[in-house]
Design a protein around this nucleic acid. Structure first.
Lengths: 149, 149
DNA sequence: CGAGTTGTTGAGACACAGTCTCAATTGTGG
DNA sequence: CCACAATTGAGACTGTGTCTCAACAACTCG
């Protein structure tokens, strides 16, 4: 998802296209892999974009409700975000370079249904996250760039 | 998992059986559903057990590595713990009363393998969490006790 | 059983994530 | 161009989790 897409998404949903939001859209679009709220805050500050902490959190929250971004729970217990397209899906996260891939819900649905049947729970929501090495990192490629600013 | 089980697990792993650890084992064993570090800290303080904040976190960390307890990521973004028996498994969490049930890895394994094949990732770890209503809460039972202290 | 060794502890400082308030600012529709 | 409402930044605040360090208490060994 590129900068205009994010901006357009905001616009379509009736949000104002403010300068801080445009800046953040650009920062987010320029990211590979996942990033944290802290990453954005640091980068915004480094580039003297004049975007406040609170605004970063608020904007991420908005983007999450719009589905332009999704929040991940890392193994470490921290949170991170990834840009994404589809409505409901999951992610494989490379623990080395931070790259993520979306994966669809497909086969999982049956598993969830089976669990609901066995436990008697009414399952409303679920979350699946996979961690490992992306093909490049698994191959030990030096070119497997570590994701950061 | 009851108090002695937790204490025994600590002992077998070579940890000292200190008073604070025994107290926490008892608190944890007395919990239904999930609980947070904050819950334990509050209860320990309320009962004047003289167990410090840091010790609660440290003990939970130890118990997690021993597999006596597992950490959950709630939808809210917070963390909680549940006592559990088996090595690798997942949980269904009732969003109303906090009750949890363990579910085994069974059918999921195939899904994970399929995803690894499709994406080319080497998947080392994964996490699945389901949220919904337990049978009692789904039935609207008033007896579906809210889990807390 | 009594002393030494060493793991463990509590208090409090600290780091960090995230939320909230509120006055000042800025899009946007008219 | 104006007025109004949404949005913003600064900073206070809350909560979670980590770290340090001196005091302490389990286990071990004699």
């Amino acid at each position: 998802m590129d900068t205009p897409s994010i901006v357009t998404a905001l616009d379509r949903a009736g949000y104002r296209l403010t300068e801080p939001r445009r800046s953040l859209a650009a920062l987010i679009a320029g990211r590979a892999g996942h990033f944290t709220a802290g990453d954005l805050i640091a980068e915004a500050r480094a580039r003297r974009l004049g975007v406040g902490r609170a605004t970063v959190f608020r904007t991420l929250e908005v983007l999450e409700t719009l589905g332009a971004v999704e929040r991940l729970d890392l193994l470490s217990g921290g949170h991170a975000y990834v840009v994404c397209q589809r409505a409901h899906h999951h992610h494989v996260v490379c623990t080395q370079c931070g790259r993520t891939n979306e994966i669809d819900d497909g086969d999982l649905r049956a598993v969830v249904n089976e669990i609901a049947r066995r436990t008697g729970y009414r399952v409303d929501d679920h979350r699946l996250e996979l961690f490992g090495l992306c093909p490049a990192c698994a191959a030990g490629q030096p070119g497997a760039t570590t994701v950061s600013a």
